[in-house]
Design a protein around this nucleic acid. Sequence first.
DNA 1: TATATACTGTTAAAAATATAACGTTAATTG
DNA 2: CAATTAACGTTATATTTTTAACAGTATATA
Lengths: 223, 223
Amino acid sequence: MEKIIIRAVPQPTLRRLAQYHHRLKQLEAMGRITVSCTILANDLKLASTQIRKDLEATSLTGQAGVGFVLSDLVHSIETVLGWDNTTDAVLVGVGSLGTALLGYERFNQIGLNIVAGFEIDNIKVGQKIHGKVILPLDKLTNLIERMKIKIGIITVPAEVAQIVTNLMLAGGVRAIWNFAPTILETPPDVVIENVSLASSYAVLSNRLLEATRNQQLTGESNS
Amino acid sequence: MEKIIIRAVPQPTLRRLAQYHHRLKQLEAMGRITVSCTILANDLKLASTQIRKDLEATSLTGQAGVGFVLSDLVHSIETVLGWDNTTDAVLVGVGSLGTALLGYERFNQIGLNIVAGFEIDNIKVGQKIHGKVILPLDKLTNLIERMKIKIGIITVPAEVAQIVTNLMLAGGVRAIWNFAPTILETPPDVVIENVSLASSYAVLSNRLLEATRNQQLTGESNS
DNA sequence: TATATACTGTTAAAAATATAACGTTAATTG
DNA sequence: CAATTAACGTTATATTTTTAACAGTATATA
Protein backbone atom coordinates (compact mmCIF):
# COMPACT_ATOMS: atom_id res chain seq x y z
CA MET A 1 0.00 0.00 0.00
CA GLU A 2 1.34 3.36 -0.95
CA LYS A 3 1.73 5.92 1.74
CA ILE A 4 0.82 9.43 0.72
CA ILE A 5 2.42 11.96 2.96
CA ILE A 6 0.66 15.29 2.89
CA ARG A 7 3.03 17.68 4.50
CA ALA A 8 2.02 21.06 5.78
CA VAL A 9 2.72 24.00 3.52
CA PRO A 10 5.60 25.97 5.05
CA GLN A 11 4.61 29.21 6.69
CA PRO A 12 6.89 31.39 4.53
CA THR A 13 5.30 29.86 1.48
CA LEU A 14 1.80 30.64 2.75
CA ARG A 15 2.76 34.25 3.29
CA ARG A 16 4.13 34.50 -0.21
CA LEU A 17 1.11 32.76 -1.69
CA ALA A 18 -0.98 35.61 -0.31
CA GLN A 19 1.32 38.02 -2.11
CA TYR A 20 1.09 36.09 -5.35
CA HIS A 21 -2.67 36.01 -5.04
CA HIS A 22 -2.84 39.76 -4.75
CA ARG A 23 -0.60 40.37 -7.72
CA LEU A 24 -2.38 37.75 -9.83
CA LYS A 25 -5.72 39.42 -9.19
CA GLN A 26 -4.22 42.67 -10.41
CA LEU A 27 -2.86 41.04 -13.54
CA GLU A 28 -6.23 39.40 -14.09
CA ALA A 29 -7.92 42.78 -13.85
CA MET A 30 -5.45 44.03 -16.45
CA GLY A 31 -6.71 41.40 -18.83
CA ARG A 32 -3.89 38.89 -18.77
CA ILE A 33 -4.73 35.27 -19.42
CA THR A 34 -1.52 33.48 -18.55
CA VAL A 35 1.40 34.30 -16.33
CA SER A 36 4.88 32.93 -15.84
CA CYS A 37 6.92 32.64 -12.69
CA THR A 38 9.49 34.90 -14.29
CA ILE A 39 7.02 37.71 -14.66
CA LEU A 40 5.72 37.29 -11.12
CA ALA A 41 9.28 37.21 -9.85
CA ASN A 42 10.07 40.49 -11.54
CA ASP A 43 6.97 42.17 -10.21
CA LEU A 44 7.49 41.01 -6.67
CA LYS A 45 11.27 41.17 -6.56
CA LEU A 46 11.67 37.50 -5.77
CA ALA A 47 13.60 34.64 -7.32
CA SER A 48 11.59 32.78 -9.93
CA THR A 49 12.85 29.46 -8.57
CA GLN A 50 11.31 30.31 -5.25
CA ILE A 51 7.99 31.01 -6.82
CA ARG A 52 8.10 27.69 -8.66
CA LYS A 53 8.80 25.88 -5.44
CA ASP A 54 5.97 27.70 -3.71
CA LEU A 55 3.51 26.93 -6.45
CA GLU A 56 4.11 23.25 -5.90
CA ALA A 57 1.76 23.69 -2.95
CA THR A 58 -1.09 24.22 -5.38
CA SER A 59 -1.04 20.84 -7.05
CA LEU A 60 -1.36 22.83 -10.26
CA THR A 61 1.10 22.37 -13.06
CA GLY A 62 2.08 25.05 -15.50
CA GLN A 63 2.94 24.60 -19.11
CA ALA A 64 6.56 24.81 -20.17
CA GLY A 65 7.16 27.66 -22.55
CA VAL A 66 3.89 29.31 -21.57
CA GLY A 67 3.33 29.49 -17.86
CA PHE A 68 0.17 29.16 -15.83
CA VAL A 69 -3.41 29.92 -16.69
CA LEU A 70 -4.05 32.90 -14.50
CA SER A 71 -7.57 32.09 -13.35
CA ASP A 72 -6.64 28.51 -12.52
CA LEU A 73 -3.70 29.68 -10.50
CA VAL A 74 -5.78 32.16 -8.55
CA HIS A 75 -8.31 29.47 -7.74
CA SER A 76 -5.70 26.97 -6.70
CA ILE A 77 -4.05 29.42 -4.37
CA GLU A 78 -7.43 30.25 -2.89
CA THR A 79 -8.04 26.57 -2.32
CA VAL A 80 -4.76 26.13 -0.49
CA LEU A 81 -5.34 29.19 1.67
CA GLY A 82 -8.97 28.43 2.35
CA TRP A 83 -10.03 31.60 0.61
CA ASP A 84 -12.39 29.94 -1.84
CA ASN A 85 -15.35 30.24 0.49
CA THR A 86 -16.16 33.17 2.70
CA THR A 87 -15.47 32.55 6.37
CA ASP A 88 -17.31 34.45 9.08
CA ALA A 89 -15.47 35.96 11.99
CA VAL A 90 -16.14 38.13 15.02
CA LEU A 91 -13.96 40.96 16.24
CA VAL A 92 -13.62 42.03 19.85
CA GLY A 93 -12.27 45.42 20.81
CA VAL A 94 -13.48 48.34 18.75
CA GLY A 95 -10.65 50.72 19.54
CA SER A 96 -8.77 52.40 16.76
CA LEU A 97 -7.17 49.21 15.48
CA GLY A 98 -10.42 47.27 15.72
CA THR A 99 -12.19 50.05 13.86
CA ALA A 100 -9.56 49.94 11.16
CA LEU A 101 -10.02 46.21 10.72
CA LEU A 102 -13.80 46.51 10.61
CA GLY A 103 -13.36 48.83 7.65
CA TYR A 104 -10.61 46.93 5.87
CA GLU A 105 -12.08 46.37 2.44
CA ARG A 106 -9.53 43.89 1.23
CA PHE A 107 -10.96 41.23 3.53
CA ASN A 108 -13.70 40.66 0.95
CA GLN A 109 -11.13 39.61 -1.57
CA ILE A 110 -9.59 37.06 0.72
CA GLY A 111 -12.80 35.48 1.92
CA LEU A 112 -12.99 36.96 5.37
CA ASN A 113 -16.25 38.44 6.62
CA ILE A 114 -16.48 40.09 10.01
CA VAL A 115 -20.09 39.68 11.06
CA ALA A 116 -19.99 41.94 14.10
CA GLY A 117 -17.79 43.88 16.48
CA PHE A 118 -17.97 43.49 20.25
CA GLU A 119 -17.23 45.97 23.01
CA ILE A 120 -17.48 46.41 26.75
CA ASP A 121 -17.73 50.15 26.31
CA ASN A 122 -21.48 50.77 26.32
CA ILE A 123 -21.18 53.99 24.38
CA LYS A 124 -20.07 52.14 21.28
CA VAL A 125 -22.58 49.32 21.64
CA GLY A 126 -25.49 49.67 19.29
CA GLN A 127 -23.61 51.87 16.86
CA LYS A 128 -22.67 50.77 13.41
CA ILE A 129 -19.02 51.14 12.43
CA HIS A 130 -18.09 50.71 8.80
CA GLY A 131 -21.47 49.06 8.41
CA LYS A 132 -20.89 46.48 11.15
CA VAL A 133 -23.03 46.30 14.27
CA ILE A 134 -21.31 46.65 17.60
CA LEU A 135 -22.68 44.30 20.22
CA PRO A 136 -22.11 44.01 23.95
CA LEU A 137 -19.51 41.54 25.10
CA ASP A 138 -22.01 39.37 26.95
CA LYS A 139 -23.56 38.34 23.67
CA LEU A 140 -20.23 37.11 22.27
CA THR A 141 -20.22 33.46 23.28
CA ASN A 142 -23.81 32.94 22.34
CA LEU A 143 -23.49 34.50 18.91
CA ILE A 144 -20.40 32.47 18.11
CA GLU A 145 -22.27 29.33 19.05
CA ARG A 146 -25.44 30.20 17.15
CA MET A 147 -23.67 31.28 13.99
CA LYS A 148 -21.03 28.57 14.23
CA ILE A 149 -18.28 31.18 13.96
CA LYS A 150 -14.85 29.62 13.67
CA ILE A 151 -12.57 32.69 13.75
CA GLY A 152 -12.17 35.28 16.46
CA ILE A 153 -10.18 38.49 16.05
CA ILE A 154 -8.79 40.07 19.19
CA THR A 155 -8.00 43.79 19.22
CA VAL A 156 -8.40 44.51 22.92
CA PRO A 157 -5.64 45.60 25.31
CA ALA A 158 -3.33 42.80 26.46
CA GLU A 159 -4.78 42.80 29.97
CA VAL A 160 -8.18 41.56 28.86
CA ALA A 161 -7.12 39.43 25.89
CA GLN A 162 -7.24 36.18 27.86
CA ILE A 163 -10.74 36.87 29.14
CA VAL A 164 -11.92 37.51 25.61
CA THR A 165 -10.15 34.38 24.45
CA ASN A 166 -11.97 32.30 27.03
CA LEU A 167 -15.32 33.68 25.92
CA MET A 168 -14.47 32.89 22.33
CA LEU A 169 -13.36 29.37 23.17
CA ALA A 170 -16.54 28.80 25.15
CA GLY A 171 -18.49 29.63 22.02
CA GLY A 172 -16.50 27.16 19.96
CA VAL A 173 -14.06 29.29 18.04
CA ARG A 174 -11.33 27.24 16.30
CA ALA A 175 -8.85 29.95 15.40
CA ILE A 176 -7.81 33.26 16.88
CA TRP A 177 -6.17 36.17 15.11
CA ASN A 178 -4.52 37.94 17.99
CA PHE A 179 -3.41 41.56 17.75
CA ALA A 180 -2.84 41.95 21.49
CA PRO A 181 0.77 41.74 22.65
CA THR A 182 0.34 38.72 24.89
CA ILE A 183 0.57 34.95 24.69
CA LEU A 184 -2.86 33.39 24.85
CA GLU A 185 -3.61 30.25 26.82
CA THR A 186 -5.52 27.94 24.48
CA PRO A 187 -6.06 24.22 23.85
CA PRO A 188 -3.47 22.76 21.49
CA ASP A 189 -5.87 22.20 18.62
CA VAL A 190 -6.89 25.84 18.39
CA VAL A 191 -5.02 27.80 15.73
CA ILE A 192 -3.37 31.01 16.87
CA GLU A 193 -1.86 33.69 14.68
CA ASN A 194 -0.23 36.55 16.50
CA VAL A 195 0.32 39.89 14.85
CA SER A 196 2.88 42.15 16.43
CA LEU A 197 3.64 45.61 15.18
CA ALA A 198 6.58 45.79 17.54
CA SER A 199 8.15 42.68 16.00
CA SER A 200 7.81 44.13 12.56
CA TYR A 201 9.27 47.41 13.70
CA ALA A 202 12.14 45.58 15.37
CA VAL A 203 13.28 44.33 11.98
CA LEU A 204 13.00 47.75 10.37
CA SER A 205 14.73 49.47 13.22
CA ASN A 206 17.64 47.05 13.44
CA ARG A 207 18.22 47.05 9.68
CA LEU A 208 18.19 50.83 9.62
CA LEU A 209 20.73 50.89 12.42
CA GLU A 210 22.98 48.49 10.54
CA ALA A 211 22.63 50.35 7.28
CA THR A 212 23.55 53.62 8.97
CA ARG A 213 26.55 51.98 10.59
CA ASN A 214 27.79 50.48 7.32
CA GLN A 215 27.37 53.79 5.58
CA GLN A 216 29.46 55.56 8.17
CA LEU A 217 32.21 52.99 7.80
CA THR A 218 32.18 52.96 4.03
CA GLY A 219 31.01 56.01 2.20
CA GLU A 220 31.21 59.03 4.36
CA SER A 221 34.91 59.56 4.94
CA ASN A 222 34.69 63.24 5.69
CA SER A 223 37.35 64.27 8.17
CA MET B 1 45.37 40.48 12.06
CA GLU B 2 42.21 39.01 13.37
CA LYS B 3 39.14 39.26 11.28
CA ILE B 4 35.98 39.99 13.18
CA ILE B 5 32.94 38.99 11.25
CA ILE B 6 29.85 40.78 12.40
CA ARG B 7 26.98 38.92 10.88
CA ALA B 8 23.49 40.31 10.65
CA VAL B 9 21.06 39.20 13.32
CA PRO B 10 18.59 36.77 11.70
CA GLN B 11 15.17 38.20 11.08
CA PRO B 12 13.32 35.58 13.15
CA THR B 13 15.61 36.41 16.03
CA LEU B 14 14.85 40.11 15.75
CA ARG B 15 11.15 39.40 15.85
CA ARG B 16 11.55 37.31 18.96
CA LEU B 17 13.80 39.87 20.60
CA ALA B 18 10.90 42.30 20.40
CA GLN B 19 8.77 39.73 22.17
CA TYR B 20 11.37 39.18 24.86
CA HIS B 21 11.67 42.91 25.34
CA HIS B 22 7.97 43.24 25.96
CA ARG B 23 7.85 40.42 28.45
CA LEU B 24 10.98 41.60 30.24
CA LYS B 25 9.48 45.05 30.72
CA GLN B 26 6.48 43.40 32.31
CA LEU B 27 8.64 41.32 34.63
CA GLU B 28 10.62 44.44 35.49
CA ALA B 29 7.41 46.23 36.40
CA MET B 30 6.58 43.28 38.63
CA GLY B 31 9.76 43.90 40.57
CA ARG B 32 11.96 41.10 39.31
CA ILE B 33 15.70 41.69 39.27
CA THR B 34 16.99 38.69 37.34
CA VAL B 35 15.48 36.36 34.82
CA SER B 36 16.45 33.04 33.28
CA CYS B 37 15.86 31.75 29.79
CA THR B 38 13.83 28.95 31.31
CA ILE B 39 11.35 31.37 32.82
CA LEU B 40 11.09 33.40 29.64
CA ALA B 41 10.62 30.21 27.68
CA ASN B 42 7.73 29.16 29.87
CA ASP B 43 6.04 32.52 29.65
CA LEU B 44 6.35 32.78 25.90
CA LYS B 45 5.87 29.12 25.03
CA LEU B 46 9.22 28.82 23.34
CA ALA B 47 12.21 26.51 23.75
CA SER B 48 14.75 27.84 26.23
CA THR B 49 17.55 26.79 23.89
CA GLN B 50 16.15 29.06 21.26
CA ILE B 51 16.08 31.98 23.62
CA ARG B 52 19.70 31.37 24.57
CA LYS B 53 20.69 31.33 20.96
CA ASP B 54 18.77 34.53 20.32
CA LEU B 55 20.31 36.29 23.28
CA GLU B 56 23.73 35.71 21.77
CA ALA B 57 22.85 38.69 19.57
CA THR B 58 23.08 40.93 22.61
CA SER B 59 26.74 40.44 23.40
CA LEU B 60 25.52 40.11 26.97
CA THR B 61 26.40 37.07 29.00
CA GLY B 62 24.24 35.65 31.73
CA GLN B 63 25.41 34.01 34.87
CA ALA B 64 25.14 30.24 35.15
CA GLY B 65 22.87 29.20 37.96
CA VAL B 66 21.29 32.64 38.12
CA GLY B 67 20.33 34.00 34.75
CA PHE B 68 20.46 37.52 33.40
CA VAL B 69 20.19 40.84 35.16
CA LEU B 70 16.86 42.05 33.90
CA SER B 71 17.67 45.70 33.38
CA ASP B 72 20.90 44.89 31.56
CA LEU B 73 19.10 42.50 29.29
CA VAL B 74 16.43 45.04 28.45
CA HIS B 75 19.06 47.61 27.59
CA SER B 76 21.07 45.22 25.48
CA ILE B 77 18.04 44.20 23.48
CA GLU B 78 17.18 47.84 22.99
CA THR B 79 20.68 48.47 21.72
CA VAL B 80 20.46 45.66 19.19
CA LEU B 81 17.07 46.79 17.98
CA GLY B 82 17.96 50.46 17.92
CA TRP B 83 15.33 51.20 20.53
CA ASP B 84 17.66 52.90 22.98
CA ASN B 85 17.11 56.32 21.46
CA THR B 86 13.84 57.68 20.22
CA THR B 87 13.59 57.80 16.44
CA ASP B 88 11.32 60.26 14.70
CA ALA B 89 9.07 59.19 11.87
CA VAL B 90 6.38 60.58 9.63
CA LEU B 91 3.18 58.82 8.65
CA VAL B 92 1.35 59.35 5.39
CA GLY B 93 -2.27 58.33 4.96
CA VAL B 94 -4.58 59.16 7.84
CA GLY B 95 -7.29 56.65 7.03
CA SER B 96 -8.48 54.23 9.64
CA LEU B 97 -5.24 52.29 9.78
CA GLY B 98 -3.14 55.45 9.81
CA THR B 99 -5.30 56.84 12.59
CA ALA B 100 -4.83 53.67 14.57
CA LEU B 101 -1.07 53.90 14.24
CA LEU B 102 -1.05 57.57 15.23
CA GLY B 103 -2.70 56.54 18.47
CA TYR B 104 -0.69 53.40 19.15
CA GLU B 105 0.72 54.05 22.60
CA ARG B 106 3.19 51.22 22.63
CA PHE B 107 5.39 53.05 20.15
CA ASN B 108 6.72 55.12 23.06
CA GLN B 109 8.08 51.99 24.65
CA ILE B 110 9.95 50.95 21.57
CA GLY B 111 11.48 54.29 20.76
CA LEU B 112 9.31 55.33 17.85
CA ASN B 113 7.88 58.80 17.71
CA ILE B 114 5.56 59.84 14.92
CA VAL B 115 6.04 63.58 14.59
CA ALA B 116 3.18 64.24 12.20
CA GLY B 117 0.61 62.70 9.90
CA PHE B 118 0.18 63.71 6.27
CA GLU B 119 -2.88 63.67 4.06
CA ILE B 120 -4.10 64.77 0.66
CA ASP B 121 -7.62 65.04 1.96
CA ASN B 122 -7.94 68.71 2.90
CA ILE B 123 -10.69 68.08 5.42
CA LYS B 124 -8.29 66.25 7.68
CA VAL B 125 -5.42 68.69 7.23
CA GLY B 126 -5.04 71.00 10.20
CA GLN B 127 -6.80 68.68 12.58
CA LYS B 128 -5.06 66.95 15.41
CA ILE B 129 -5.50 63.19 15.65
CA HIS B 130 -4.38 61.46 18.81
CA GLY B 131 -2.43 64.61 19.54
CA LYS B 132 -0.55 64.59 16.23
CA VAL B 133 -0.85 67.38 13.68
CA ILE B 134 -2.07 66.46 10.23
CA LEU B 135 -0.23 68.32 7.49
CA PRO B 136 -0.80 68.59 3.75
CA LEU B 137 1.15 66.25 1.54
CA ASP B 138 3.07 69.04 -0.16
CA LYS B 139 4.90 69.76 3.05
CA LEU B 140 6.13 66.20 3.39
CA THR B 141 9.48 66.31 1.61
CA ASN B 142 10.46 69.57 3.16
CA LEU B 143 9.65 68.53 6.70
CA ILE B 144 11.56 65.28 6.34
CA GLU B 145 14.55 67.21 5.13
CA ARG B 146 14.35 69.88 7.80
CA MET B 147 13.86 67.48 10.69
CA LYS B 148 16.25 64.87 9.26
CA ILE B 149 13.55 62.23 9.53
CA LYS B 150 14.84 58.77 8.72
CA ILE B 151 11.66 56.67 8.84
CA GLY B 152 8.50 56.96 6.78
CA ILE B 153 5.32 55.03 7.47
CA ILE B 154 3.00 54.44 4.55
CA THR B 155 -0.68 53.79 5.18
CA VAL B 156 -2.14 55.03 1.94
CA PRO B 157 -3.93 52.92 -0.70
CA ALA B 158 -1.64 50.85 -2.92
CA GLU B 159 -2.29 53.08 -5.93
CA VAL B 160 -0.56 56.09 -4.43
CA ALA B 161 2.05 54.32 -2.33
CA GLN B 162 4.79 54.79 -4.91
CA ILE B 163 4.13 58.50 -5.21
CA VAL B 164 4.36 58.88 -1.47
CA THR B 165 7.52 56.80 -1.46
CA ASN B 166 9.13 59.10 -3.98
CA LEU B 167 8.29 62.14 -1.90
CA MET B 168 9.77 60.48 1.15
CA LEU B 169 12.93 59.48 -0.69
CA ALA B 170 13.31 63.01 -2.01
CA GLY B 171 13.33 64.22 1.57
CA GLY B 172 16.00 61.73 2.53
CA VAL B 173 14.15 58.98 4.31
CA ARG B 174 16.32 55.87 4.92
CA ALA B 175 13.66 53.33 5.88
CA ILE B 176 10.03 52.74 4.99
CA TRP B 177 7.47 50.84 6.98
CA ASN B 178 4.99 49.95 4.29
CA PHE B 179 1.43 48.92 5.10
CA ALA B 180 0.20 49.23 1.52
CA PRO B 181 -0.13 45.96 -0.42
CA THR B 182 2.36 46.80 -3.12
CA ILE B 183 6.06 46.43 -3.84
CA LEU B 184 7.81 49.77 -3.62
CA GLU B 185 10.51 50.84 -6.04
CA THR B 186 13.42 52.10 -3.95
CA PRO B 187 17.22 52.37 -4.07
CA PRO B 188 18.93 49.26 -2.71
CA ASP B 189 20.27 50.94 0.41
CA VAL B 190 16.86 51.98 1.67
CA VAL B 191 15.39 49.62 4.23
CA ILE B 192 11.88 48.36 3.53
CA GLU B 193 9.62 46.47 5.89
CA ASN B 194 6.31 45.39 4.46
CA VAL B 195 3.38 44.58 6.68
CA SER B 196 0.64 42.51 5.14
CA LEU B 197 -2.53 41.59 6.93
CA ALA B 198 -3.44 39.27 4.11
CA SER B 199 -0.21 37.30 4.53
CA SER B 200 -0.86 36.89 8.20
CA TYR B 201 -4.43 35.83 7.54
CA ALA B 202 -3.21 33.37 4.92
CA VAL B 203 -1.37 31.44 7.61
CA LEU B 204 -4.33 31.46 9.97
CA SER B 205 -6.75 30.46 7.30
CA ASN B 206 -4.67 27.60 5.92
CA ARG B 207 -3.92 26.21 9.37
CA LEU B 208 -7.58 26.33 10.29
CA LEU B 209 -8.43 24.49 7.10
CA GLU B 210 -5.89 21.80 7.85
CA ALA B 211 -6.98 21.46 11.46
CA THR B 212 -10.58 21.04 10.39
CA ARG B 213 -9.57 18.44 7.84
CA ASN B 214 -7.53 16.44 10.34
CA GLN B 215 -10.35 16.54 12.82
CA GLN B 216 -12.78 15.17 10.32
CA LEU B 217 -10.42 12.31 9.50
CA THR B 218 -9.56 11.47 13.08
CA GLY B 219 -12.08 12.33 15.75
CA GLU B 220 -15.48 12.60 14.24
CA SER B 221 -16.22 9.12 12.98
CA ASN B 222 -19.98 9.49 12.89
CA SER B 223 -21.52 7.36 10.17
C1' DT C 1 31.57 20.98 52.94
C1' DA C 2 29.74 17.68 49.70
C1' DT C 3 25.68 17.15 46.63
C1' DA C 4 21.92 18.36 44.05
C1' DT C 5 19.78 21.76 41.23
C1' DA C 6 19.26 25.57 38.12
C1' DC C 7 21.35 27.91 35.12
C1' DT C 8 24.74 29.31 31.22
C1' DG C 9 27.62 29.03 26.73
C1' DT C 10 29.29 26.34 23.12
C1' DT C 11 29.47 22.91 19.90
C1' DA C 12 27.19 19.53 17.11
C1' DA C 13 23.20 17.56 14.69
C1' DA C 14 18.84 17.98 12.51
C1' DA C 15 15.31 20.21 10.09
C1' DA C 16 13.54 23.63 7.30
C1' DT C 17 14.08 26.76 3.64
C1' DA C 18 16.09 28.83 -0.35
C1' DT C 19 19.03 28.54 -4.41
C1' DA C 20 21.07 26.45 -8.18
C1' DA C 21 21.55 23.08 -11.93
C1' DC C 22 19.63 20.43 -15.46
C1' DG C 23 16.82 18.15 -18.77
C1' DT C 24 12.48 18.90 -21.22
C1' DT C 25 8.56 21.22 -23.67
C1' DA C 26 6.20 24.86 -26.15
C1' DA C 27 6.17 29.01 -28.78
C1' DT C 28 8.57 32.26 -31.83
C1' DT C 29 11.56 33.69 -35.40
C1' DG C 30 14.65 33.63 -39.18
C1' DC D 1 11.30 23.76 -40.44
C1' DA D 2 15.50 24.25 -37.72
C1' DA D 3 17.23 27.19 -34.06
C1' DT D 4 16.50 30.11 -30.39
C1' DT D 5 14.14 31.59 -26.49
C1' DA D 6 11.03 31.30 -22.63
C1' DA D 7 9.13 28.56 -19.72
C1' DC D 8 8.34 24.34 -16.71
C1' DG D 9 9.29 20.40 -13.09
C1' DT D 10 12.53 17.89 -10.59
C1' DT D 11 16.51 16.83 -8.27
C1' DA D 12 20.52 18.27 -5.92
C1' DT D 13 23.12 21.61 -3.18
C1' DA D 14 23.73 25.31 -0.04
C1' DT D 15 22.25 28.14 3.55
C1' DT D 16 19.71 29.33 7.41
C1' DT D 17 17.44 28.28 11.45
C1' DT D 18 16.17 25.33 15.12
C1' DT D 19 16.94 21.71 18.36
C1' DA D 20 19.73 18.82 21.02
C1' DA D 21 23.77 17.44 23.70
C1' DC D 22 27.10 18.47 26.96
C1' DA D 23 30.47 20.42 29.96
C1' DG D 24 30.93 23.97 33.35
C1' DT D 25 29.53 27.47 37.13
C1' DA D 26 26.82 29.51 40.80
C1' DT D 27 23.46 28.91 44.40
C1' DA D 28 20.94 26.33 47.74
C1' DT D 29 20.53 22.49 50.87
C1' DA D 30 21.47 18.64 53.65
